[in-house]
């Protein structure tokens, strides 16, 4: 497996091409994330028998928000301003080198799966600190709940990623994708399927979807993410929404390419990139529709039942690693 990354270094495309590919990926996530959110809203509405807002609604909301006046709470320190920016920046950096469109993004040798995990943690920590900054009851409660859910979903994420890394012999993301393209049989192996199940649970928790959190609620007993960002307004709120949408796009895209890597571009050439972009859009849209349908058909779990779900994900991930070790 050492060879896969070695080729990235030796025979890879030019630095400009990989940099352009990375910029393209960030752009795709920044535009695609809000569209995916809009698509999920649309599917939910249709499934419930409503017409629903257009798919571009989130983008329209973002345009409205950036034009509004920035208002911050009396008690707020610099953290309120820093948190949304760090959230967006961490998602953008993760999107730049994750193999979404191409397996040859910029600094492919440093594109490590654990770095993505910890960049996501960085965004979560920033948001949680932002929630505590205004000194309100809701913000603190939301931070507390979000960190609790995060503390239990992160182990599942880390060990789920490790299951893939053990199979591929590397935690380098392009390396993992290359390895699964080279060994299609791995994709149906028990450890992959178990890891997939674990990571689906994690993605639902990290993006705050039903049954873990309900993004459309403002009921104090149930809200998690919305409580945390209650004090963000105007452009700050636009950045928070953008960051969350980017994380959704990033996680769905990553999940899609780790488990169904077909269509991804390996050469950074014009036509292949277009195909890869279309494939990424199709894959993530399909997953978004599935998640939306699950959301419509299930009820949100009580907060204290959520850890059971996430612990289930963690156990699945550990079993995935064990299966891989036994099978080797």
């Amino acid at each position: 497996m050492t060879a896969t990354t070695a080729t990235v270094v030796a025979g890879g495309p030019s630095a400009w091409a990989t940099a352009a590919a990375s910029v393209l990926q960030v752009g795709a996530v920044a535009l695609g994330g809000p569209l995916l959110l809009g698509l999920m809203g649309k599917v939910r509405a249709r499934a419930e028998g409503r017409t629903g807002p257009p798919v571009t609604q989130v983008l329209l909301d973002l345009r409205k928000l950036v034009r509004k006046e920035a208002v911050r709470a009396d008690q707020a320190s610099a953290v309120t301003a820093l948190a949304p920016r760090l959230l967006v920046a961490s998602a953008a950096v993760a999107a730049a080198f994750t193999p979404l469109v191409t397996t040859r993004p910029v600094v492919a040798t440093g594109a490590d799966a654990f770095v993505v995990v910890y960049l996501l943690l960085m965004g979560s920590v920033a948001l949680a600190l932002g929630g505590l900054d205004a000194g309100t009851a809701f913000g603190g409660m939301g931070s507390s709940r979000a960190m609790t859910i995060g503390a239990i979903s992160e182990p599942a994420l880390l060990v789920g990623v490790l299951a893939l890394a053990v199979q591929s012999g590397t935690s380098n993301l392009p390396g993992i994708v290359d390895a699964s393209l080279a060994h299609p049989g791995w994709l149906a192996s028990p450890q992959r399927l178990l890891a997939l199940a674990a990571l689906v649970v994690v993605v639902i928790a990290e993006t705050g979807r039903v049954p873990v959190d309900n993004p459309s609620t403002h009921l104090e007993l149930t809200m998690v993410h919305e409580a945390m960002v209650l004090e963000q307004a105007g452009p700050d709120l636009a950045l928070v929404t953008m960051g969350e949408a980017m994380r959704l796009g990033l996680l769905l895209g990553l999940l899609a390419n780790l488990f169904f890597p077909w269509g991804i571009d390996a050469s950074v050439s014009g036509p292949a990139v277009v195909v890869a972009l279309a494939a990424l859009g199709a894959k993530t849209a399909a997953m978004a529709v599935l998640i939306a349908l699950v959301e419509v058909s299930t009820a949100k779990l009580r907060l204290f039942r959520v850890p059971e779900l996430l612990a289930g994900g963690f156990v699945l991930a550990v079993v995935a690693v064990m299966t891989g070790l036994v099978a080797r």
Binding site: Q75, S77, L129, L132, S143, G150, E154, P155, V159, V318
Partner: peptide, 30 residues
């Protein structure tokens, strides 16, 4: 090694929670 990785993963999230609490409750807010 598996036990090590598992505990590593579990402590990561717990540590982040502990220190968000220390910074957020100690230094931010009212």
């Amino acid at each position: 090694l598996l036990a090590g990785v598992a505990v590593f993963a579990v402590t990561g999230g717990l540590t982040a929670t502990a220190f968000v609490k220390a910074v957020g409750v100690g230094f931010l807010g009212r």
